[in-house]
């Protein structure tokens, strides 16, 4: 009994530590920020409109990736409200008409010293958008941006799990995640190809 009694505190401590590290830490580490507007990818890319990913997230002729499209892209259709949602009204009134950029939080924003050329992967290697971005293109609303309070980057970069082990092929955009695919596809990449 006393042995149990003597094991209990350290065991309790161990459990507390593990719980703090594995459960409390990820909960506390990430700050949830809502996107400024609720945008439905499904409504735009779904069956009714049938826009492809590259129709808004396309490439310039020199290969630069447009990324999150500027307000001009939305203005092409939404010069005036064409639906009846409250978010669209806000879009038209506060952003399209004064041509003000929407402050979207970018889930996959990489640090400045990392260079990911979309065109080489999408056009050059023919990789589908879903491979890295999952089913983001079919969502009806934008999930909140989970920002790491300490480093400032999004949760999408590290990955869903706090251990950093990827849950799926499209989870995590750390260097190790990129290198995993490079190893499988047997594509060389020197340090300088991605760091500048």
């Amino acid at each position: 009994m006393s042995r149990l009694r003597s094991i209990l505190p350290p065991l309790l401590g161990l459990l507390l530590g593990l719980a703090a590290g594995w459960a409390a830490f990820p909960y506390l580490l990430y700050e949830h920020e809502a996107q400024p507007l609720s945008f439905s990818h499904a409504a735009h890319a779904g069956e009714t409109l049938g826009l492809g990913c590259e129709d808004c997230h396309g490439f310039e002729p020199d290969g630069t990736f447009i990324g999150v499209p500027p307000i001009e892209q939305c203005a092409a259709c939404h010069e005036e409200a064409i639906g009846d949602s409250a978010d669209e009204a806000i879009l038209v009134r506060d952003y399209v008409q004064p041509r003000r950029e929407v402050a979207w939080r970018v889930y996959s924003r990489e640090p400045d010293n990392a260079y990911f050329p979309h065109v080489v992967h999408v056009r050059g290697a023919g990789i589908a958008c879903q491979r890295c971005h999952g089913e983001h293109g079919s969502t009806a609303t934008l999930r909140p941006f989970q920002r790491n309070r300490v480093s400032g980057y999004g949760r999408d970069i590290w990955g869903e799990r706090i251990s950093g082990i990827a849950t799926s092929a499209s989870d995590g955009k750390k260097m190790s995640d990129c290198l995993r695919c490079h190893a499988t596809e047997d594509v060389a990449a020197s340090c300088q190809d991605c760091h500048r």
Partner: peptide, 23 residues
């Protein structure tokens, strides 16, 4: 003992390592 145990537990969790990285 509790503190010692939690220290070991923390070490076995991502907290100190990820925190170091993020800092």
């Amino acid at each position: 003992m509790v503190m010692g145990g939690s220290a070991v537990g923390l070490m076995l969790s991502p907290l100190p390592w990820k925190l170091l990285d993020d800092v």
